[in-house]
Amino acid sequence: MNLTWMAWTLPTAVFFITILMLLCGMAIWEYVSPGGNPRVGVLQFETTRGDRLFLSLLGSAFIHLAWLGLVGPNLWWALALSVVYAIGVFRYV
């Protein structure tokens, strides 16, 4: 199968494989502990594990964009900040 039209690069492939692994991880987590673990956190409304992953990914995208726009092109710090943010979301939201 010729996939050159999709213009793959190693970093984007790593990015999508990471997302896929996260989704697989969530599926296994759901299999082991069904129900999505709904709870009311700091946002004052009910969220499930899926909601928390969505918030983590969306928030991380905006953290990276904000870093690019306000600080500069070195995104490793933005990545570190996103990991801290995601841990915070899974712990408190």
Binding site: M6, T12, F16
Partner: peptide, 17 residues
């Protein structure tokens, strides 16, 4: 996914990135 791949590259056509 293709759009994401395009967003980190430049192209002048002919599938050269």
């Amino acid at each position: 996914m293709t759009v994401v791949n395009y967003s980190v590259q430049d192209t002048f056509g002919n599938n050269v990135f």
